[in-house]
């Protein structure tokens, strides 16, 4: 489909998903602000979702929906399973983010700071 540029597309899709995962992990590991950590988690989430969908993609396939025009012709379709998984993952990711952020708010109200190097109550 992409001819000679197959490598460029592969790199851009896979590469951006790997890059998002690594960037997000870097934020989770290094950043001291709780909001940044949550942002990092959400970036990792995005990267993983992109990876799943990219793995399910088939060259020349169409979306797995049997519209009236294609119902009899049985066209080549992309793998629907990763899409269903990602659908779930996005919604759950939202729930996780919401709970994490509420914890951030709670911690901020309690310690008046959201930087984990200044919240010491659970460390020694």
């Amino acid at each position: 489909m992409f001819g000679d540029y197959q490598n460029v597309v592969t790199m851009s899709v896979y590469g951006s998903s790997i890059a998002l995962i690594l960037i997000g992990l870097y934020g989770v590991l290094i950043k001291k602000h709780l909001m940044k950590i949550v942002i990092g988690l959400s970036v990792v989430d995005s990267g993983v979702n992109l990876m799943f969908v990219a793995v399910g993609y088939i060259k020349g396939g169409t979306a797995p929906i049997f519209s009236p025009s294609v119902i009899d012709s049985k066209p080549l379709m992309v793998d629907p399973v990763p899409q269903a998984l990602v659908l779930t993952a996005i919604v759950i990711g939202f729930a996780v983010t919401a709970v994490a952020l509420s914890l951030v708010i709670r911690l901020f109200k309690h310690h008046n700071t959201a930087r984990i190097d200044q919240i010491k109550s659970l460390k020694w």
């Binding site: 592969t10 899709v13 896979y14 790997i18 990219a54 993609y57």
Partner: peptide, 18 residues
Amino acid sequence: GFYLIQAFNLVPFGANRV
């Protein structure tokens, strides 16, 4: 990241895995 790239080499983009 290096190992992720290696892993992605095993699943070529756009190949028909269905």
